[in-house]
Amino acid sequence: MAEEIMDEMDELDVAANADDDAQKGKYMTFQIGDEYYGIAINYVNEIVNIQSITGVPEVEDYIKGLINIRGKIIPVIDVKVRFRQEPVQYTDRTCIILIDVNSTMVGLIVEKIADVITINEKDIIPPPSLNQSVIGKDKYVFGLVKVADEVKLLLDPEKLIRDEDPMSLE
C-alpha cells in the first residue's frame, strides 16, 4: 500500500517541479481509529514503514522516540496518542509519514495510509463552532471535507506537532 502511495508521491514530485500549484489542494489521507484524516501534501516528505524506535525518557507520552532515516535522526509522534486515544499495537500496515513543518522534521505514526485526494478549497467546511472549545483532537482539525460519502478531517500539521506549551517548539 505504502509503495503505491509512494509512487503516486513521486509523480506528484515531478509535477511539483514543473508547477508548484500541482500540489495545491492535494491531501494525503490516512486512517486513525475509525476516522480518516488528511494532511496537505506539501508538508509530506516521505513515507516509511514502521521501524524500530528508540525511546527518549521524560518526554510527552505521544512522542515515541527517535528514528534514523539515512543518518538523519527524526523524532516520531504517535498521532493516535496525540489525539488522546488508546494506542494500538503497530502492525506491518503501520506507517510513518515524515513531515517537514517550518524545517522541523517530524514523523507521524499512523495506522494506515489511505490515498492522495484532491480537494477543492471551497468544499472545505470549517469544523462546527461548538467543537472549537473542546480541548482535544479538534483543535488540530482546521476543516472537514466530504469525499464520496466519507467525512475526512483535515489536519493542521503546525498545530499537530506543536506542544501545548508554545515555548517548547523554539
Binding site: 528508540t54 527518549v56 525518557p57 527517535l66 534514523n68 535522526i73 522541523t104 517548539l169 523554539e170
Partner: peptide, 27 residues
Amino acid sequence: VKPIPSYIKKVQGLSGCTQLGDGSIAL
C-alpha cells in the same frame, strides 16, 4: 555525536544521540 532534535525538549542527563553500527539510535 548528533544533537537530539530540538523538537524534543531538553532532557536533563542526556547530551545527544548517536547512530550505532546496526543503524539503531543510542542516547
